[in-house]
């Protein structure tokens, strides 16, 4: 496997964790949550600060998840208790988090090169297994991690609380009449989602070797692209299928970006590319359906016309 391809796969799988978070809000809760752009950075910032201050990378990563959960919950509270529109609550959190992230880091960029991170630990642990295997240690580690998270998410959405959460996004009035406080399920859902996003940010900072205050910009669109691409390619018939599709979507997105860079696009074009991918992915299914519909109707019309003709001719023969 080429190094570039391996690199895209690794970062794609790390982004998949973030995409699973976006799936929770965007699809399950029907809550377009823009906190993601802020909380992804928060994850990276918290992990980086703790790691350079000598805490264990594991502790730093867990702390990042908790920070994401807290800020996600705040967005949920703004929306449910403050009655602020869902989009606006996310934007407010995202903007506020920009300042908070700078406060957490104390500067715009923290380097982690030479520091012990979760990923260097994995590499060290696997170095005894021979070079051919240790080359793939990181990608194997993140794949196992993302599958584990997927299974936990699937299982959670099957629990009584999980069912109530899904119903909140599907028919809120109905689940209220079955004694669920939909404010709480929304806050819980947005909190968990941002916990996953922050985990993804924390891993990304450790993977790329630095945390940057702007590393989360455009993250929500990458998450949406992953969800939409994944569902379009792999289907979303059940929750299990959809979560797997989202992971696949994130990886494919990453590979497409790598390909685009190779054919000469510059990294600064990537945001535009992502937006275009999402736009196409949103519009294409509708256009394909319309086109199929029209084809079907044309075929039917043609058939009924030829039947009519046959009928008329048959009538002539009889006469």
């Amino acid at each position: 496997m080429g190094t570039a391809l391996l690199g895209s796969l690794e970062s794609g799988v790390i982004f998949a964790i973030m995409a699973l978070g976006v799936y929770l809000t965007f699809r399950i809760l029907d809550f377009p949550d823009l906190t993601v752009d802020g909380s992804f950075t928060t994850g990276g910032a918290v992990a980086a600060v703790l790691i350079v201050n000598g805490y264990s990378p594991f502790f730093g990563t867990i702390a990042a998840v908790i920070a994401g959960i807290i800020f996600g919950a705040l967005t949920g509270i703004l929306h449910t208790k403050g009655k602020i529109n869902a989009l606006l609550s996310g934007i407010l959190s995202m903007i506020a988090l920009y300042s908070i992230n700078l406060r957490i880091m104390g500067k715009a960029n923290i380097g982690l090169l030479g520091e012990d991170t979760l990923l260097t630990q994995v590499q060290t642990a696997s170095s005894g297994l021979g070079e051919s295997l240790s080359k793939y240690s990181i990608v194997l580690f993140v794949i196992v991690l993302v599958i584990l998270i997927k299974l936990i998410v699937d299982r959670f959405l099957d629990t009584e609380v999980g069912l109530a959460l899904r119903a909140t996004g599907n028919n809120a009035r109905m689940i209220r009449s079955f004694s669920t406080n939909t404010d709480n399920t929304i806050i819980l859902g947005v909190a968990l989602s941002n916990g996953l996003v922050a985990l993804s940010g924390a891993l990304m900072a450790q993977y790329q070797g630095f945390s940057d205050v702007s590393m989360g910009i455009g993250m929500i669109i990458i998450g949406l692209a992953s969800v939409i691409i994944g569902e379009a390619i792999f289907g979303d018939r059940s929750i299990r299928r959809a979560t797997l599709a989202v992971i696949g979507g994130a990886v494919i997105y990453r590979l497409v970006v790598a390909l685009a860079l190779r054919v000469g696009l510059s990294p600064s074009d990537m945001k535009l590319m992502t937006a275009l991918i999402v736009i196409i992915a949103l519009i294409a299914p509708m256009m394909i359906n319309n086109w199929k519909d029209k084809k079907k109707k044309d075929a039917r019309r043609k058939q009924s016309a030829s039947e009519m003709k046959a009928h008329l001719e048959g009538g002539k023969n009889n006469a």
């Binding site: 609380v161 069912l163 899904r166």
Partner: peptide, 30 residues
Amino acid sequence: MAGTAPAMTIEENLAMAYSRDKKRGLRKGV
């Protein structure tokens, strides 16, 4: 359309009705 969740299965809908007078936890719904 108001009394059921369309994107969820029949058994999942019934599971939500079943939990109406109980505390919802992390037990499996179905």
